[in-house]
């Protein structure tokens, strides 16, 4: 919460009330309650503009209602009011005051616009990390060039460190947006845009695609998992040397099913599969993800639903349904996927 900001508080009270009414848990995707520096700077500007605009509204509405109440034509009153041509003083007044208000708004606007546009420093350092986010119809790929990691749907970041996200797209225009951390930037094919994000508190933040990208634009969610530096390092280690070998017989069968059906599109690191498909999300460490397809809670029932009929979950997805697999193959495939750490 923005301390000492009456407007922010007003909004928040409103928001809390609504939350209470909706009876839901607190989402980490609120523009008015950002958990990172970038988002907070943006909130400051939002607040500033809200103050100025409320001032304008108050003045206008006050005159408006006064005029409407005061100058009604009484029944039977046929007098003709004085035909006033105008007033130069007044005209100047309502040119100068808005200009002053706009200058007050414009100065911090320009300052923040420039300060937030800084690119990542050239040399590597411990103060920041770099991530590449690539939009696909309808999922997100994340690459950590400095750590040699490729993952999907879940962006892990260390708390308190600046994360320079380089955003691009593989097909159509998407937009990368984590409302609870920072504003969005377009993911356009053939371009790389940068957005600096950071999280001050550990937690899971909801990410969205914000540019119409096709049938399942509304379902192209992802998650930003902010964790303590030590946890993040552990996660990096795990991703770099993943445990992807099947242990049980069932899982071994599952790996075979995967090789027959899935590997031309999906890759799993740390396996001796013949192919590393790159058309669909990398599934390394699948069982540790919160969500399936960035959308459904990661449990067996949902996995089953997704594998049987992805179209029902995400209209227009490129993933085909696998309801033709027999029950045993399906069970072992699920067992294998859920063993991936």
């Amino acid at each position: 919460m923005s301390r000492g900001k009456p407007i922010g508080r007003l909004f928040l009270v409103f928001a809390m009330f609504a939350l209470f009414m909706a009876g839901c848990e607190k989402p980490m995707s609120n523009v008015l309650d950002p958990q990172g520096k970038t988002g907070k700077e943006q909130l400051h500007l939002i607040n500033l503009s809200v103050y100025i605009m409320i001032l304008v509204c108050v003045v206008v509405f006050a005159i408006f209602f006064y005029v409407l109440l005061r100058f009604r034509r009484k029944p039977g009153d046929n007098s003709i009011p004085k035909q006033v041509e105008g007033s130069l003083t007044l005209e100047i007044l309502w040119i100068v005051i808005p200009v002053i208000l706009l200058v007050i708004l414009a100065i911090p606007t320009v300052a923040v616009t420039f300060s937030q546009a800084k690119a990542a420093p050239k040399q590597q350092s411990d103060d920041f990390i770099r991530v590449k986010a690539i939009g696909h119809q309808f999922w997100w790929e994340f690459q950590y060039p400095d750590h040699n990691i490729r993952t999907a749907q879940e962006l892990h970041i260390p708390v308190g460190k600046k994360v320079y996200v380089e955003v691009t797209s593989d097909d159509v225009v998407h937009a990368f947006w984590v409302p609870g951390l920072a504003g969005k930037v377009d993911a356009s094919p053939g371009r790389i845009n940068r957005v600096p994000i950071d999280a001050e508190k550990p937690g899971v933040y909801k990410g969205r695609c914000a540019e119409l990208c096709g049938a399942s634009h509304a379902l192209m969610n992802f998650q930003v998992v902010a964790e303590k530096s030590s946890d993040f390092d552990k996660w990096v280690k795990k991703r770099q040397s993943p445990n992807s070998d099947p242990q049980t017989a069932e899982q071994k069968d599952g790996k075979k099913v995967f090789a027959q059906n899935c590997m031309s599109c999906h890759a799993i690191d740390g396996t001796q599969l013949k192919m590393r498909g790159n058309k669909a999300p990398n599934l390394t460490g699948f069982s540790s993800r919160n969500k399936i397809a960035g959308l459904l809670d990661n449990n067996e029932k949902n996995l089953d639903r997704w594998l049987h009929n992805p179209e029902e979950v995400k209209p227009g997805t490129y993933m085909p349904g696998f309801s033709h697999l027999d029950k045993k193959d399906m069970t072992s495939l699920k067992a294998y996927l859920q063993s991936l750490e």
Partner: peptide, 22 residues
């Protein structure tokens, strides 16, 4: 006037990064 003031709010680029396409 209410549509106009939100227009001004949208003209602030860093803030617009939050509002844009919402």
């Amino acid at each position: 006037v209410m549509g106009g003031v939100t227009g001004i709010m949208l003209s602030v680029p860093p803030a617009d990064f939050q509002y844009h396409d919402t």
